[in-house]
Design a binder for these strands. Sequence first.
DNA 1: ACGCATTTGTTCGTATGTATT
DNA 2: TAATACATACGAACAAATGCG
Lengths: 245, 245
Amino acid sequence: MTDVLAAAATPSPLYQQVKALITRGLQSGDWKPGEAIPPETELAARFKVSQGTVRKAIDELAAENLLVRRQGKGTFVATHAEEHQQYRFLRLTPDAGERARLRRRFLDCRRMRAPADVAKWLGLDRGEHAVQVRRLLLSGDTPVVLDDIWLPGGLFRGLTAEKLATYRGPMYGLFEAEFGVNMIRAEEKIRAVAATADEAALLGCAAGAPLLLVERLSCTYGDKPVEWRRGLYDTARHHYRNELS
Amino acid sequence: MTDVLAAAATPSPLYQQVKALITRGLQSGDWKPGEAIPPETELAARFKVSQGTVRKAIDELAAENLLVRRQGKGTFVATHAEEHQQYRFLRLTPDAGERARLRRRFLDCRRMRAPADVAKWLGLDRGEHAVQVRRLLLSGDTPVVLDDIWLPGGLFRGLTAEKLATYRGPMYGLFEAEFGVNMIRAEEKIRAVAATADEAALLGCAAGAPLLLVERLSCTYGDKPVEWRRGLYDTARHHYRNELS
DNA sequence: ACGCATTTGTTCGTATGTATT
DNA sequence: TAATACATACGAACAAATGCG
Protein backbone atom coordinates (compact mmCIF):
# COMPACT_ATOMS: atom_id res chain seq x y z
CA MET A 1 0.00 0.00 0.00
CA THR A 2 2.74 2.43 0.91
CA ASP A 3 5.32 3.63 -1.54
CA VAL A 4 7.15 6.75 -0.51
CA LEU A 5 6.65 5.48 2.98
CA ALA A 6 8.10 2.06 2.46
CA ALA A 7 11.53 3.26 3.47
CA ALA A 8 10.34 4.88 6.66
CA ALA A 9 10.28 3.03 9.93
CA THR A 10 6.96 1.29 9.62
CA PRO A 11 5.74 0.34 13.08
CA SER A 12 4.27 3.81 13.57
CA PRO A 13 0.91 5.08 12.34
CA LEU A 14 0.72 6.30 8.76
CA TYR A 15 -0.08 9.86 9.70
CA GLN A 16 2.98 9.98 11.94
CA GLN A 17 5.11 8.91 9.00
CA VAL A 18 3.48 11.56 6.85
CA LYS A 19 4.13 14.09 9.60
CA ALA A 20 7.79 13.10 9.64
CA LEU A 21 8.00 13.46 5.87
CA ILE A 22 6.47 16.93 5.94
CA THR A 23 8.77 17.93 8.78
CA ARG A 24 11.73 16.72 6.77
CA GLY A 25 10.56 18.88 3.88
CA LEU A 26 10.42 21.88 6.17
CA GLN A 27 13.81 21.12 7.60
CA SER A 28 15.46 20.77 4.19
CA GLY A 29 13.96 24.04 3.05
CA ASP A 30 11.56 22.66 0.43
CA TRP A 31 9.05 25.20 1.70
CA LYS A 32 10.31 28.32 3.43
CA PRO A 33 8.71 30.27 6.28
CA GLY A 34 5.75 32.26 5.05
CA GLU A 35 5.29 30.09 1.97
CA ALA A 36 2.44 27.66 1.40
CA ILE A 37 3.02 23.93 1.39
CA PRO A 38 1.29 21.91 -1.33
CA PRO A 39 -2.45 21.32 -0.91
CA GLU A 40 -3.60 18.34 1.07
CA THR A 41 -4.87 16.55 -2.03
CA GLU A 42 -1.49 16.83 -3.71
CA LEU A 43 0.39 15.62 -0.63
CA ALA A 44 -2.07 12.74 -0.35
CA ALA A 45 -1.35 11.74 -3.94
CA ARG A 46 2.40 12.15 -3.49
CA PHE A 47 2.50 10.01 -0.36
CA LYS A 48 -0.16 7.58 -1.60
CA VAL A 49 -2.38 8.01 1.43
CA SER A 50 -5.86 9.40 1.88
CA GLN A 51 -6.45 13.10 2.32
CA GLY A 52 -7.74 12.45 5.83
CA THR A 53 -4.41 10.99 6.82
CA VAL A 54 -2.57 14.05 5.52
CA ARG A 55 -5.07 16.24 7.37
CA LYS A 56 -4.31 14.53 10.64
CA ALA A 57 -0.57 14.97 10.12
CA ILE A 58 -1.01 18.65 9.30
CA ASP A 59 -3.36 19.08 12.24
CA GLU A 60 -0.61 18.04 14.60
CA LEU A 61 2.00 20.20 12.92
CA ALA A 62 -0.38 23.13 13.16
CA ALA A 63 -0.98 22.40 16.84
CA GLU A 64 2.79 22.55 17.34
CA ASN A 65 2.91 25.88 15.50
CA LEU A 66 5.10 24.58 12.69
CA LEU A 67 2.34 25.24 10.18
CA VAL A 68 -0.56 27.66 10.00
CA ARG A 69 -3.79 26.72 8.27
CA ARG A 70 -5.83 29.33 6.45
CA GLN A 71 -9.17 28.24 5.08
CA GLY A 72 -9.53 28.88 1.40
CA LYS A 73 -5.89 29.91 1.01
CA GLY A 74 -3.73 26.99 1.99
CA THR A 75 -1.38 25.82 4.73
CA PHE A 76 1.65 27.97 5.40
CA VAL A 77 5.01 27.51 7.06
CA ALA A 78 5.03 29.41 10.36
CA THR A 79 7.27 32.45 10.43
CA HIS A 80 8.55 34.99 12.92
CA ALA A 81 8.56 37.73 10.28
CA GLU A 82 5.59 39.56 8.88
CA GLU A 83 3.42 38.80 11.85
CA HIS A 84 1.70 42.13 12.29
CA GLN A 85 1.98 41.39 15.98
CA GLN A 86 5.11 41.43 18.10
CA TYR A 87 7.90 38.97 18.69
CA ARG A 88 6.33 35.54 18.83
CA PHE A 89 8.41 34.26 21.73
CA LEU A 90 8.45 37.41 23.86
CA ARG A 91 6.05 37.12 26.76
CA LEU A 92 6.77 40.55 28.20
CA THR A 93 3.63 42.67 28.45
CA PRO A 94 3.07 46.23 29.63
CA ASP A 95 1.15 46.43 32.92
CA ALA A 96 -1.17 49.03 31.41
CA GLY A 97 -2.00 50.19 27.95
CA GLU A 98 -1.40 48.85 24.50
CA ARG A 99 1.22 46.37 23.52
CA ALA A 100 3.36 49.03 21.89
CA ARG A 101 6.18 48.08 19.57
CA LEU A 102 9.56 47.96 21.27
CA ARG A 103 12.56 49.73 19.78
CA ARG A 104 15.87 47.93 19.49
CA ARG A 105 19.36 49.21 20.15
CA PHE A 106 22.24 46.92 19.29
CA LEU A 107 25.20 47.29 21.60
CA ASP A 108 27.54 44.66 20.30
CA CYS A 109 27.99 41.86 17.79
CA ARG A 110 31.19 39.83 17.77
CA ARG A 111 32.57 36.42 16.95
CA MET A 112 34.55 34.54 19.55
CA ARG A 113 35.41 31.09 20.78
CA ALA A 114 32.33 29.90 22.62
CA PRO A 115 32.62 30.12 26.42
CA ALA A 116 32.28 26.73 28.09
CA ASP A 117 28.69 27.15 29.28
CA VAL A 118 27.50 28.50 25.94
CA ALA A 119 29.23 25.65 24.11
CA LYS A 120 27.45 23.21 26.37
CA TRP A 121 24.03 24.67 25.68
CA LEU A 122 24.57 24.85 21.94
CA GLY A 123 26.28 21.49 21.66
CA LEU A 124 29.50 22.98 20.26
CA ASP A 125 32.90 21.36 20.46
CA ARG A 126 35.56 23.07 22.51
CA GLY A 127 37.16 25.85 20.49
CA GLU A 128 34.28 26.27 18.04
CA HIS A 129 33.15 29.79 17.37
CA ALA A 130 29.98 31.52 18.43
CA VAL A 131 28.43 34.87 17.62
CA GLN A 132 27.50 37.05 20.54
CA VAL A 133 24.88 39.78 20.19
CA ARG A 134 24.11 42.26 22.90
CA ARG A 135 21.09 44.52 22.62
CA LEU A 136 18.49 46.58 24.42
CA LEU A 137 14.75 46.68 23.91
CA LEU A 138 13.19 50.02 24.75
CA SER A 139 9.65 51.12 25.41
CA GLY A 140 9.68 54.69 24.22
CA ASP A 141 13.00 55.90 25.62
CA THR A 142 13.20 53.68 28.68
CA PRO A 143 15.18 50.43 28.42
CA VAL A 144 13.18 47.36 29.44
CA VAL A 145 15.17 44.35 28.27
CA LEU A 146 18.90 43.65 28.08
CA ASP A 147 19.60 40.58 25.97
CA ASP A 148 22.81 38.62 25.61
CA ILE A 149 22.45 36.24 22.70
CA TRP A 150 24.75 33.47 21.55
CA LEU A 151 24.51 31.70 18.21
CA PRO A 152 26.55 28.85 16.70
CA GLY A 153 29.21 30.42 14.48
CA GLY A 154 28.86 27.81 11.79
CA LEU A 155 25.21 28.52 11.10
CA PHE A 156 25.48 32.27 11.32
CA ARG A 157 28.50 33.18 9.23
CA GLY A 158 28.16 36.69 7.94
CA LEU A 159 25.97 37.98 10.74
CA THR A 160 27.08 41.55 11.42
CA ALA A 161 25.96 44.49 13.52
CA GLU A 162 25.20 46.20 10.22
CA LYS A 163 22.74 43.50 9.16
CA LEU A 164 21.07 43.43 12.55
CA ALA A 165 20.63 47.18 12.61
CA THR A 166 19.21 47.52 9.11
CA TYR A 167 16.80 44.58 9.11
CA ARG A 168 13.18 45.57 9.57
CA GLY A 169 11.22 43.18 11.73
CA PRO A 170 12.06 40.62 14.40
CA MET A 171 15.57 39.20 14.61
CA TYR A 172 14.20 35.70 14.17
CA GLY A 173 12.80 36.89 10.83
CA LEU A 174 16.31 37.82 9.76
CA PHE A 175 17.56 34.42 10.86
CA GLU A 176 14.94 32.72 8.69
CA ALA A 177 15.51 34.83 5.62
CA GLU A 178 19.27 35.19 5.73
CA PHE A 179 20.50 32.02 7.41
CA GLY A 180 17.71 29.53 6.87
CA VAL A 181 17.39 28.93 10.59
CA ASN A 182 13.80 28.63 11.75
CA MET A 183 13.12 28.83 15.48
CA ILE A 184 10.22 26.58 16.30
CA ARG A 185 10.44 25.86 20.01
CA ALA A 186 12.15 27.26 23.07
CA GLU A 187 12.49 26.59 26.74
CA GLU A 188 12.90 29.37 29.28
CA LYS A 189 14.22 29.33 32.83
CA ILE A 190 13.12 32.31 34.85
CA ARG A 191 14.67 33.69 38.01
CA ALA A 192 14.79 36.88 40.06
CA VAL A 193 18.23 38.47 40.40
CA ALA A 194 19.73 41.73 41.60
CA ALA A 195 21.07 44.12 38.96
CA THR A 196 24.85 44.52 38.82
CA ALA A 197 26.28 48.00 38.41
CA ASP A 198 26.87 47.46 34.68
CA GLU A 199 23.43 46.05 34.07
CA ALA A 200 21.82 48.82 36.08
CA ALA A 201 23.63 51.44 34.03
CA LEU A 202 22.39 49.94 30.78
CA LEU A 203 18.83 49.45 31.98
CA GLY A 204 18.62 52.76 33.77
CA CYS A 205 17.69 51.26 37.10
CA ALA A 206 19.36 51.17 40.50
CA ALA A 207 22.19 48.75 41.17
CA GLY A 208 20.78 45.89 43.20
CA ALA A 209 17.28 46.40 41.82
CA PRO A 210 15.36 43.15 41.32
CA LEU A 211 15.28 42.02 37.69
CA LEU A 212 13.78 39.07 35.90
CA LEU A 213 16.47 36.79 34.50
CA VAL A 214 15.15 34.84 31.53
CA GLU A 215 17.44 32.20 30.07
CA ARG A 216 16.21 30.82 26.78
CA LEU A 217 17.36 27.85 24.74
CA SER A 218 15.79 27.95 21.28
CA CYS A 219 15.61 24.99 18.97
CA THR A 220 14.98 24.40 15.31
CA TYR A 221 13.61 21.26 13.67
CA GLY A 222 14.51 18.08 15.47
CA ASP A 223 14.96 19.93 18.76
CA LYS A 224 18.40 21.03 17.69
CA PRO A 225 19.52 23.96 19.89
CA VAL A 226 20.57 26.96 17.79
CA GLU A 227 20.39 29.88 20.17
CA TRP A 228 21.04 30.52 23.82
CA ARG A 229 20.20 33.83 25.35
CA ARG A 230 20.20 35.49 28.71
CA GLY A 231 17.69 38.31 29.07
CA LEU A 232 17.28 40.74 31.94
CA TYR A 233 13.80 42.24 32.17
CA ASP A 234 12.97 45.36 34.13
CA THR A 235 9.53 44.49 35.50
CA ALA A 236 8.74 47.86 37.05
CA ARG A 237 6.14 48.60 34.41
CA HIS A 238 6.00 45.27 32.56
CA HIS A 239 5.41 41.65 33.45
CA TYR A 240 6.00 38.22 32.00
CA ARG A 241 2.67 36.73 31.02
CA ASN A 242 2.05 33.00 30.98
CA GLU A 243 -0.96 30.79 30.36
CA LEU A 244 -1.48 27.53 32.23
CA SER A 245 -3.85 24.71 31.42
CA MET B 1 -31.24 15.94 11.55
CA THR B 2 -30.39 17.29 14.98
CA ASP B 3 -32.44 16.60 18.06
CA VAL B 4 -30.69 17.34 21.29
CA LEU B 5 -28.91 20.00 19.35
CA ALA B 6 -31.98 21.72 18.01
CA ALA B 7 -32.08 24.02 21.00
CA ALA B 8 -28.46 25.07 20.70
CA ALA B 9 -27.38 28.08 18.72
CA THR B 10 -27.15 26.54 15.31
CA PRO B 11 -24.88 28.65 13.12
CA SER B 12 -21.81 26.88 14.52
CA PRO B 13 -20.37 23.55 13.38
CA LEU B 14 -21.94 20.42 14.81
CA TYR B 15 -18.82 19.34 16.66
CA GLN B 16 -18.66 22.73 18.36
CA GLN B 17 -22.20 22.26 19.59
CA VAL B 18 -21.31 18.80 20.83
CA LYS B 19 -18.27 20.28 22.54
CA ALA B 20 -20.48 22.83 24.26
CA LEU B 21 -22.86 20.11 25.41
CA ILE B 22 -20.06 18.03 26.87
CA THR B 23 -18.60 21.09 28.57
CA ARG B 24 -22.00 21.83 30.07
CA GLY B 25 -22.12 18.29 31.40
CA LEU B 26 -18.72 18.78 33.01
CA GLN B 27 -19.75 22.10 34.48
CA SER B 28 -22.95 20.77 35.98
CA GLY B 29 -21.11 17.85 37.55
CA ASP B 30 -22.59 15.03 35.47
CA TRP B 31 -19.11 13.56 35.37
CA LYS B 32 -16.65 14.43 38.11
CA PRO B 33 -12.87 14.86 37.91
CA GLY B 34 -11.18 11.48 37.59
CA GLU B 35 -14.32 9.77 36.33
CA ALA B 36 -14.86 8.53 32.78
CA ILE B 37 -17.34 10.20 30.49
CA PRO B 38 -19.58 7.92 28.39
CA PRO B 39 -17.96 6.20 25.39
CA GLU B 40 -17.90 8.01 22.07
CA THR B 41 -20.45 5.65 20.56
CA GLU B 42 -22.92 6.34 23.33
CA LEU B 43 -22.47 10.10 23.12
CA ALA B 44 -22.88 9.88 19.35
CA ALA B 45 -26.18 8.06 19.82
CA ARG B 46 -27.32 10.46 22.52
CA PHE B 47 -26.58 13.54 20.44
CA LYS B 48 -27.66 11.91 17.17
CA VAL B 49 -24.39 12.64 15.41
CA SER B 50 -21.68 10.42 14.00
CA GLN B 51 -18.89 9.09 16.17
CA GLY B 52 -16.39 11.10 14.17
CA THR B 53 -18.11 14.30 15.16
CA VAL B 54 -17.98 13.37 18.83
CA ARG B 55 -14.33 12.46 18.37
CA LYS B 56 -13.50 15.88 17.04
CA ALA B 57 -15.29 17.56 19.94
CA ILE B 58 -13.44 15.39 22.45
CA ASP B 59 -10.15 15.96 20.63
CA GLU B 60 -10.44 19.67 21.25
CA LEU B 61 -11.45 19.23 24.87
CA ALA B 62 -8.47 16.95 25.36
CA ALA B 63 -6.19 19.51 23.69
CA GLU B 64 -7.45 22.06 26.23
CA ASN B 65 -6.75 19.61 29.06
CA LEU B 66 -10.37 19.37 30.15
CA LEU B 67 -10.42 15.68 29.26
CA VAL B 68 -7.78 12.96 29.10
CA ARG B 69 -8.05 10.14 26.58
CA ARG B 70 -6.78 6.67 27.45
CA GLN B 71 -6.84 4.07 24.71
CA GLY B 72 -8.78 0.99 25.63
CA LYS B 73 -10.05 2.52 28.87
CA GLY B 74 -12.09 5.56 28.04
CA THR B 75 -12.01 9.33 28.26
CA PHE B 76 -11.66 10.86 31.70
CA VAL B 77 -12.33 14.20 33.28
CA ALA B 78 -9.02 15.91 34.02
CA THR B 79 -8.13 16.18 37.68
CA HIS B 80 -5.54 17.82 39.88
CA ALA B 81 -5.65 14.96 42.35
CA GLU B 82 -4.21 11.49 41.97
CA GLU B 83 -1.71 12.62 39.38
CA HIS B 84 1.34 10.75 40.55
CA GLN B 85 3.24 13.82 39.50
CA GLN B 86 3.33 17.19 41.23
CA TYR B 87 0.99 20.15 41.20
CA ARG B 88 -0.25 20.53 37.64
CA PHE B 89 0.00 24.31 37.54
CA LEU B 90 3.28 24.75 39.43
CA ARG B 91 6.10 25.53 37.04
CA LEU B 92 8.80 25.76 39.71
CA THR B 93 11.63 23.33 39.08
CA PRO B 94 14.80 22.58 41.05
CA ASP B 95 17.97 23.72 39.27
CA ALA B 96 19.55 20.34 39.89
CA GLY B 97 18.32 16.93 40.84
CA GLU B 98 14.94 15.28 40.93
CA ARG B 99 11.62 17.04 41.08
CA ALA B 100 11.15 16.18 44.73
CA ARG B 101 7.79 16.52 46.38
CA LEU B 102 7.33 19.79 48.22
CA ARG B 103 6.06 19.87 51.77
CA ARG B 104 3.32 22.28 52.75
CA ARG B 105 2.96 24.37 55.86
CA PHE B 106 -0.27 26.30 56.31
CA LEU B 107 0.17 29.57 58.13
CA ASP B 108 -3.30 30.98 58.06
CA CYS B 109 -6.86 30.45 56.84
CA ARG B 110 -9.52 33.05 57.50
CA ARG B 111 -12.72 34.50 56.14
CA MET B 112 -13.00 38.24 55.63
CA ARG B 113 -14.61 40.86 53.46
CA ALA B 114 -12.71 40.80 50.20
CA PRO B 115 -10.19 43.63 49.82
CA ALA B 116 -10.93 45.83 46.82
CA ASP B 117 -8.28 44.39 44.51
CA VAL B 118 -9.17 40.80 45.34
CA ALA B 119 -12.86 41.55 44.78
CA LYS B 120 -12.02 42.99 41.41
CA TRP B 121 -10.08 39.92 40.30
CA LEU B 122 -12.71 37.48 41.52
CA GLY B 123 -15.66 39.50 40.31
CA LEU B 124 -17.14 39.88 43.80
CA ASP B 125 -19.50 42.63 44.86
CA ARG B 126 -18.33 45.08 47.47
CA GLY B 127 -18.74 43.57 50.93
CA GLU B 128 -18.81 39.94 49.78
CA HIS B 129 -16.64 37.54 51.69
CA ALA B 130 -13.48 35.80 50.61
CA VAL B 131 -11.32 33.08 52.13
CA GLN B 132 -7.66 33.85 52.51
CA VAL B 133 -5.10 31.07 52.79
CA ARG B 134 -1.47 31.66 53.54
CA ARG B 135 1.04 28.87 53.19
CA LEU B 136 4.62 27.88 52.58
CA LEU B 137 6.02 25.25 50.25
CA LEU B 138 9.27 23.72 51.46
CA SER B 139 11.94 21.70 49.74
CA GLY B 140 13.28 19.57 52.56
CA ASP B 141 13.44 22.13 55.37
CA THR B 142 14.06 25.24 53.33
CA PRO B 143 11.08 27.40 52.37
CA VAL B 144 10.82 28.05 48.64
CA VAL B 145 7.36 29.47 48.03
CA LEU B 146 5.15 31.79 50.05
CA ASP B 147 1.59 31.79 48.73
CA ASP B 148 -1.26 34.15 49.53
CA ILE B 149 -4.45 32.69 48.15
CA TRP B 150 -7.92 34.24 47.91
CA LEU B 151 -11.08 32.32 47.13
CA PRO B 152 -14.69 33.47 46.74
CA GLY B 153 -16.43 32.89 50.08
CA GLY B 154 -19.63 31.67 48.50
CA LEU B 155 -18.03 28.76 46.69
CA PHE B 156 -15.76 27.71 49.53
CA ARG B 157 -18.00 27.66 52.57
CA GLY B 158 -16.60 25.32 55.15
CA LEU B 159 -12.97 25.55 54.07
CA THR B 160 -10.89 25.43 57.23
CA ALA B 161 -7.23 25.23 58.19
CA GLU B 162 -8.08 21.79 59.56
CA LYS B 163 -9.29 20.52 56.18
CA LEU B 164 -6.32 22.00 54.36
CA ALA B 165 -3.85 20.43 56.75
CA THR B 166 -5.34 16.94 56.73
CA TYR B 167 -6.04 16.57 53.02
CA ARG B 168 -3.51 14.39 51.22
CA GLY B 169 -2.61 15.63 47.77
CA PRO B 170 -2.74 18.96 45.98
CA MET B 171 -5.01 21.72 47.26
CA TYR B 172 -6.80 21.84 43.92
CA GLY B 173 -7.68 18.19 44.48
CA LEU B 174 -9.41 19.16 47.71
CA PHE B 175 -11.26 21.92 45.89
CA GLU B 176 -12.55 19.40 43.35
CA ALA B 177 -13.60 16.78 45.83
CA GLU B 178 -14.98 18.99 48.59
CA PHE B 179 -16.30 22.06 46.80
CA GLY B 180 -16.90 20.91 43.25
CA VAL B 181 -14.63 23.60 41.88
CA ASN B 182 -12.44 22.40 39.04
CA MET B 183 -9.52 24.61 38.00
CA ILE B 184 -9.02 24.30 34.29
CA ARG B 185 -7.08 27.33 33.19
CA ALA B 186 -4.95 30.05 34.74
CA GLU B 187 -3.05 33.11 33.76
CA GLU B 188 0.11 34.21 35.54
CA LYS B 189 1.86 37.57 35.69
CA ILE B 190 5.48 37.30 36.73
CA ARG B 191 7.73 39.99 38.12
CA ALA B 192 10.94 40.39 40.11
CA VAL B 193 10.58 42.11 43.47
CA ALA B 194 12.67 42.72 46.60
CA ALA B 195 11.72 40.74 49.69
CA THR B 196 10.17 42.75 52.54
CA ALA B 197 11.34 42.06 56.07
CA ASP B 198 8.26 39.93 56.81
CA GLU B 199 8.55 37.93 53.63
CA ALA B 200 12.26 37.43 54.15
CA ALA B 201 11.65 36.09 57.63
CA LEU B 202 9.13 33.56 56.38
CA LEU B 203 11.24 32.47 53.41
CA GLY B 204 14.52 32.46 55.29
CA CYS B 205 16.26 34.85 52.93
CA ALA B 206 17.73 38.32 53.35
CA ALA B 207 15.47 41.33 53.36
CA GLY B 208 15.74 42.98 49.97
CA ALA B 209 16.69 39.73 48.28
CA PRO B 210 15.27 39.39 44.75
CA LEU B 211 12.20 37.14 44.60
CA LEU B 212 9.92 36.01 41.82
CA LEU B 213 6.42 37.43 42.25
CA VAL B 214 3.87 35.20 40.55
CA GLU B 215 0.29 36.45 40.47
CA ARG B 216 -2.17 33.86 39.29
CA LEU B 217 -5.81 34.14 38.31
CA SER B 218 -7.37 30.68 38.00
CA CYS B 219 -10.61 29.97 36.21
CA THR B 220 -13.11 27.17 36.10
CA TYR B 221 -15.48 26.31 33.25
CA GLY B 222 -16.56 29.27 31.19
CA ASP B 223 -13.46 31.24 32.18
CA LYS B 224 -15.07 32.13 35.48
CA PRO B 225 -12.34 33.34 37.91
CA VAL B 226 -12.42 31.37 41.17
CA GLU B 227 -9.00 31.93 42.68
CA TRP B 228 -6.50 34.71 42.87
CA ARG B 229 -3.12 34.11 44.40
CA ARG B 230 0.11 35.95 44.94
CA GLY B 231 3.16 33.71 45.19
CA LEU B 232 6.70 34.65 46.13
CA TYR B 233 9.31 32.21 44.85
CA ASP B 234 12.85 32.02 46.15
CA THR B 235 14.78 31.26 42.96
CA ALA B 236 18.18 30.71 44.56
CA ARG B 237 18.02 26.98 43.86
CA HIS B 238 14.88 26.76 41.73
CA HIS B 239 13.58 28.35 38.57
CA TYR B 240 10.30 28.89 36.79
CA ARG B 241 10.26 26.73 33.69
CA ASN B 242 8.29 27.67 30.59
CA GLU B 243 7.90 26.23 27.12
CA LEU B 244 7.43 28.42 24.07
CA SER B 245 6.28 27.46 20.62
C1' DA C 1 -3.10 -18.35 29.86
C1' DC C 2 -6.47 -17.46 26.62
C1' DG C 3 -10.02 -15.32 24.45
C1' DC C 4 -13.66 -11.98 24.24
C1' DA C 5 -15.95 -7.59 24.81
C1' DT C 6 -15.20 -2.76 25.25
C1' DT C 7 -13.10 1.53 24.03
C1' DT C 8 -10.16 4.53 21.83
C1' DG C 9 -6.90 4.96 17.66
C1' DT C 10 -6.07 4.72 12.67
C1' DT C 11 -7.35 4.76 7.80
C1' DC C 12 -10.07 4.85 4.02
C1' DG C 13 -13.75 6.90 1.01
C1' DT C 14 -17.27 10.22 -0.12
C1' DA C 15 -20.05 14.26 0.00
C1' DT C 16 -20.94 18.84 1.20
C1' DG C 17 -19.93 23.49 3.34
C1' DT C 18 -17.22 27.75 3.46
C1' DA C 19 -13.54 31.07 2.58
C1' DT C 20 -10.45 33.05 -0.92
C1' DT C 21 -9.09 34.62 -5.30
C1' DT D 1 -19.05 33.14 -11.29
C1' DA D 2 -15.97 29.53 -11.13
C1' DA D 3 -11.99 27.19 -9.37
C1' DT D 4 -9.24 26.09 -5.43
C1' DA D 5 -8.29 24.73 -0.76
C1' DC D 6 -9.35 23.97 3.77
C1' DA D 7 -13.43 22.56 7.05
C1' DT D 8 -17.19 19.65 8.40
C1' DA D 9 -19.78 15.41 8.55
C1' DC D 10 -21.02 10.76 7.64
C1' DG D 11 -20.10 5.80 7.37
C1' DA D 12 -17.31 1.73 7.62
C1' DA D 13 -13.64 -1.23 8.81
C1' DC D 14 -9.72 -2.72 11.24
C1' DA D 15 -5.88 -2.05 14.85
C1' DA D 16 -4.34 -1.67 19.53
C1' DA D 17 -4.88 -1.37 24.45
C1' DT D 18 -7.40 -2.74 28.42
C1' DG D 19 -9.95 -5.55 31.57
C1' DC D 20 -12.66 -9.47 32.73
C1' DG D 21 -14.10 -14.14 32.98
